[in-house]
Computed example of a mutant assay.
Amino acid sequence: MRRLRSLLLGLLLGPGLALGALAQVQLKVLGDFAFPPYSSLRGTEPVGIDVDILHELGRRTGVQFHIELVPFKRVVESVRAGSVDGGMALLRSAEREGFALFTGVMHNSTYSLFVTRDSKMAFDGLASLHGKRIGKVRGFFISPEFDAEVAAERIQLHETAGAEQGLHMLMLGRVDAISGQTVVTRYLARQLGYADAVRPLPTPLVPDRPTFLVLSRASKLPDKEALGERLRLALEAMHRDGSIERIEARHLQ
């Protein structure tokens, strides 16, 4: 019976990733060091929702994930260069498709503009941001349209190493608003004592979009396509059976 189960699992994994081969796969994956509650450092230990998702994904697939948390721009640049095997958790874009193989969804993200509580600023499209100073985490992708407005110097972009720095800049009046993942920015505002001092504008800057575990197309990892499909199927199963929802609940309670 044990041999039969191994054979069936080998068939599910595909010809390039039979059970023995998959168990030997080790992936170095980078994530954002300043993105709580999804990923952050407790001392030197990576913790957070996305970290726990990878731990569970590894348990189910046999893949050994070696997670390192760094500034987000380095995540993107390392995946592009192939100096790591993968990255988490990236929004999809045509430009990133060129250097990253997108596997399964880790979590969904809504990005909002956060302002101080007494701000009179309104947002009803990118034109309403003309002349405004907007903070954004370095390396984060909003949209091609936003990038075009910045390139045309109609929006003054101020990049930060992390969301926490952006909140400090907002409170100091150095920017008019910051772009932030809604769950992360609310979480950090509570941690920093800013919960009553900042608020998101009603209209999202970026509507709800999935973020992915990606593999670097430039890495020397063999059988990337087959491995990516296996990771995608396992992540989908984790969403279906409620595992990811339970992980999120533990961190957000």
Rank of each mutant, 00 (worst) to 15 (best):
T182V: 07
A148L: 08
G87L: 14
I178R: 01
F114I: 05
R80T: 11
A94S: 11
R174H: 12
A89T: 13
G82Q: 02
P202F: 07
G162Q: 06
F146C: 03
L91S: 05
G82L: 07
P144D: 12
G135I: 08
P200M: 15
P144Q: 15
S83K: 09
K73R: 14
S179V: 07
L129H: 05
D85K: 09
E97S: 13
R117Q: 07
R138W: 09
Q181T: 02
F99W: 13
A148K: 13
V175R: 14
P204Y: 04
K73F: 13
T160L: 14
D176I: 08
G180H: 01
F114R: 06
K73L: 08
F123V: 14
A151N: 14
V76W: 04
Y187D: 10
A177M: 06
L172M: 12
G125V: 09
R190V: 09
G139W: 06
L113K: 00
V175G: 06
L188D: 05
S78A: 13
A81S: 03
K132G: 04
D196W: 03
A197E: 14
I134K: 01
P200E: 08
V150F: 15
A197M: 14
M121K: 04
A127W: 01
Q156S: 11
R154D: 04
L69M: 00
G193P: 10
I142A: 12
E95W: 07
T61M: 02
K120I: 09
S143L: 10
V184T: 03
G173M: 11
Q165E: 08
Y111R: 12
A81M: 07
H168G: 00
T160N: 07
H107L: 03
D85G: 05
D176G: 11
V70G: 00
G87S: 01
G162S: 07
A163G: 14
Y111Q: 12
S128I: 12
D196I: 04
P144V: 03
G180R: 12
V70P: 00
V183K: 14
S109A: 05
D118F: 08
G125A: 02
P144L: 03
R133S: 06
A148V: 08
A163Y: 10
D147R: 06
L101I: 11
F140C: 00
R92T: 04
R154Q: 11
T116H: 09
F65A: 02
G86A: 06
